[in-house]
């Protein structure tokens, strides 16, 4: 029996980090335009993609 599983804990930490980034008040920060695109659109998809990338790196790493 494994008493602790670092992969699960890393992913859970990633989740908490994501919750902070994807809710208010931090979500209220991006405003206006970035290169002609709405900043909040880029911010939401950027953070989302970043979370997916990190999750992939954590989950697919050979134990």
């Amino acid at each position: 029996m494994k008493r602790s599983n670092p992969m699960r804990q890393r992913l859970a930490a990633l989740c908490l980090f994501g919750v902070l980034l994807l809710t208010y008040p931090l979500l209220g920060l991006p405003g206006g335009d970035w290169n002609g695109l709405p900043a909040v659109y880029l911010y939401l998809f950027g953070v989302w993609a970043g979370l997916i990338l990190l999750a992939a790196m954590v989950a697919e790493r050979r134990a």
């Binding site: 599983n5 992969m7 699960r8 992913l11 859970a12 989740c15 919750v19 994807l22 989302w48």
Partner: peptide, 12 residues
């Protein structure tokens, strides 16, 4: 769709 993304990270 953000909710499921976050929930799946609680893979435990």
């Amino acid at each position: 769709y953000l909710g499921p993304t976050l929930m799946l990270l609680f893979v435990g």
